[in-house]
């Protein structure tokens, strides 16, 4: 189906067909990465602003490369330590950026909902590059693209998402996307890291790693932030890793032989994933990274590549 949205804010608001349009477009664009001259003229004369309120070298670089390979002018605006630190409000910063007439603003923010505010404030396209514990649509899209490449389809697959679900935007975007594409999702972790009413998002909840990973097609391990320990959500990293760390032994004992191991990165080796698993044959973690640029190219192209009037009228 054609793409008509002005912004990409959440996976939750997308139709399955829209998710597939994004994934298909990204799949088509992967070829550019294999070229000697990695540049196509599609977004010549367009301006993409990366507005990052949180440090994320990986996501920012990925959007930057995506924009440049499409020939857009890419401007990085790191809001940490600049005007934000001098007390300029988010909305003021947004208005200042709007004055530069960008075509797309890619925003990463520690506050849930910040991209939605920006979308209301600015007439250009907004891409959510991760907001608080809300959503991270492009990460979910690259995860989906990876899954389809490895498994050939979506419908009927089962996935376990393991770890700190409560604070994870990656988990939320993936849950929405996977449900829409006909997959079954189980979230698993200690109860303190599972958000209240998680089953209302349409997934099963498990409090035991061994049960959660049994017979699933995909295991997605989430990064455990050290702060969770200080907030009293888990007693210690040692204990977490003992009960929730994915090791070769556990995989061999409970998981299917063709299971995919995914991780949005960066991996805490020895905490949620043992090094043998992270680097082992089940792991598609590096495939995920390589899909990142293609997915972000697809997003930028669909938002900024078409007739601006029509795309923005929604």
């Amino acid at each position: 189906m054609g793409w008509t949205r002005k912004d990409l804010l959440t996976i939750r608001e997308l139709e399955a067909a829209e998710i597939l349009t994004l994934v298909d477009t990204a799949a088509s664009l992967q070829e550019i990465a294999t070229r000697e001259i990695k540049k196509v003229p599609a977004l010549r004369g367009k301006t993409v602003v990366n507005l990052f309120y949180e440090n994320s070298t990986r996501t920012r670089t990925s959007f930057e490369i995506a924009g440049k390979w499409l020939s857009a002018d890419v401007i990085n605006f790191s809001a940490t330590g600049s005007s934000a630190a001098k007390g300029e409000s988010f909305v003021d910063t947004a208005r200042n950026i709007a004055a530069m007439s960008p075509d797309v603003v890619v925003v990463r923010h520690s506050s849930s909902g910040a991209p939605a505010l920006l979308a209301r404030e600015l007439s250009c396209s907004i891409v959510n590059a991760g907001d608080g514990a809300h959503e991270h649509p492009t990460q979910a899209l690259l995860d989906l693209l990876t899954i389809r490449e490895k498994k050939g389809h979506f419908e009927g697959l089962s996935v376990a998402i393991v770890g700190d679900i409560a604070h994870s935007r990656v988990a939320r975007s993936n849950i929405h996307g996977m449900k829409k594409l006909g997959m079954t999702v189980t979230v698993a972790g200690p109860p303190t890291l599972i958000p209240p009413y998680a089953q209302e998002l349409g997934c099963k909840v498990s409090y035991r790693l061994e049960d959660a990973i049994r017979d699933v097609d995909v295991i997605m391990m989430l990064r455990l932030q050290q702060e969770r320990m200080h907030a009293g959500l888990i007693p210690s990293l040692r204990e977490y890793s003992r009960y929730w760390g994915l090791t070769l032994d556990r995989l061999a004992a409970h998981a299917r032989p063709d299971v995919l191991i995914m991780h949005p990165g960066p991996v805490n080796r020895g905490v949620e994933l043992s090094p043998e698993v992270a680097d082992g044959p089940y792991s598609v973690i590096l495939d995920q990274v390589s899909k990142g640029v293609a997915v972000r190219m697809a997003v930028l192209l669909l938002l900024a590549g078409g007739r601006s009037g029509e795309a923005q009228a929604q």
């Binding site: 088509s28 664009l29 196509v40 599609a42 590549g305 078409g306 795309a311």
Partner: peptide, 22 residues
């Protein structure tokens, strides 16, 4: 060859439909 990314009328069509160049 898919020439969508090289079209000079991208601004006049809706959202582009890109298929793989192979």
């Amino acid at each position: 060859l898919d020439i969508t990314l090289y079209r000079d009328d991208l601004d006049m069509i809706g959202a582009p439909v890109v298929r793989a160049t192979d």
